[in-house]
Amino acid sequence: MTPRSIAIPKNWTTFNFASLFSAFLYPALGLALLITMTILGLTLEALNLQWWYLPVGLGVVALSIFICNAGIGPLHRIMQHKAGELRAPAQVLTMINLMIAMQGTVRDWVNYHSQHHRFSDKPGDPHNPFESKRWAWVGWILWRDAKDMARPMALWLKQHPIIVWMDRFYNSISLVLHLFIPAVIYLIVWAAGGSLMLTAICHACFIIGRAIQFHATVYGINVLGHLPTPKWADHLIGLLTGGEAFHDHHHEEPQSALHRPRKGVWNRIVDYNGTILLVYEKLGWVRNLKIAPQFA
């Protein structure tokens, strides 16, 4: 089998502009907004830039990373690997978080990830780092094979009408989440006489947080997750990906709702995607969780 990094032609017919926007252009807009607001705040006293905007902005970055992972965790572990069953509230929340994370449709995500497990680190793997680290990072999402995009939704997902409906209207709902709702927030803050500068800084930090999480996932998991890395790197990337970075464990036990042992405060912090699922279980939002013996 020809490696996909070679088999897929690199031209304008295979180039995916939506991926370019989510991976690079949208983060650049967020960074530009933050830099612009900071410069204006430092040069124009009337804008009243405050020192405490910094910790607030960092908090928003962390919140954005958490929200994005709260979508990817249930998608990966439950929708993809069937480590449990999501009830209706969790399905809606997960889909909204996925759209905030700009992960693309569930249909395409699951199809690509199924190929990844089938051909892991071999020709046929959509993002094999041993072919090219750059390809495994962003090449595979920038250049797409039309046959990949034409694959139907996995049969087990078609049993969930909420997921099917929200996935069908992925672009429309994403437009509401990323454009309409922020515009309404700006309008409300302006009408209430609040700080548009602080609002813009928080908006920029949310976009930047999503970008950090996005690239921590596509690089930290697709590339570093398949290469020898020191333990501290695994845990750092684990914090940025909700525990998805513990990839060797995942390939050994793919059908597990946890990627770290259930017990231990640090395990539940660094594998917070699994912790989210445990909380959902308590709320009755997920049932029949499957957990690998070494993590139980």
Rank of each mutant, 00 (worst) to 15 (best):
L33S: 11
P74E: 07
M99K: 15
V138R: 01
F169Q: 08
R262K: 15
P228H: 12
N16K: 03
E131Q: 14
F169V: 00
L33V: 07
F15P: 13
T38Y: 08
M149T: 10
A136R: 04
L93A: 15
S172E: 09
H178R: 01
V265Q: 03
V106T: 15
A200Q: 09
G220E: 04
F206W: 15
A62F: 13
I141H: 10
T241M: 07
W165M: 11
L20W: 03
P161F: 01
A18R: 15
N11Y: 07
I212A: 07
D125M: 09
L86Q: 11
L44M: 13
P230G: 08
R4H: 08
L258V: 08
W109D: 01
I39L: 12
H247D: 02
R168E: 01
G194V: 05
F17A: 09
K158P: 00
G242C: 05
V138K: 02
S174Q: 02
Q80F: 06
R4A: 04
D167G: 01
M37G: 02
T36L: 10
P129A: 06
V279C: 04
P27Q: 10
P89S: 07
G41T: 03
W135M: 09
S22A: 15
R151A: 02
G243S: 10
R134G: 05
F15Q: 11
A101P: 11
A292C: 01
A62P: 03
V56Q: 13
G73I: 05
W52F: 14
I163R: 02
L47E: 06
P161K: 08
I72R: 10
A233M: 14
I100R: 10
R260E: 00
I201A: 04
I173F: 04
G71A: 05
L258D: 10
V60T: 12
E252L: 13
M149D: 12
H235L: 00
P129N: 10
K82C: 01
Y112M: 09
A146W: 04
S120F: 11
G238F: 04
I35A: 15
W52N: 14
I207L: 14
L40P: 02
G41E: 07
S174G: 01
L44D: 13
N288E: 15
P9L: 06
I276F: 12
I6N: 09
I100A: 03
Y26L: 12
M102E: 10
R134N: 06
A136H: 09
H247N: 10
P161I: 01
F206G: 00
A200K: 12
A150K: 15
G225P: 08
A211C: 06
R77T: 06
D271H: 01
G194T: 02
P228V: 00
P123N: 14
G243T: 03
V61R: 14
G84M: 08
G30Q: 10
H76S: 11
Y219I: 13
R260L: 04
I72E: 14
R134S: 06
S19D: 05
Y170W: 14
W52C: 03
H127V: 09
V184N: 05
K10P: 04
W232Y: 13
F295C: 02
T275W: 09
Y272S: 05
G242I: 07
Q294I: 00
D248H: 00
I78F: 10
A296E: 15
R268Y: 05
M153N: 06
N222S: 10
G30C: 08
I181Y: 02
N171M: 00
L283W: 07
L198W: 05
A136K: 07
M37I: 00
G225T: 04
R210C: 03
G243L: 02
R287G: 03
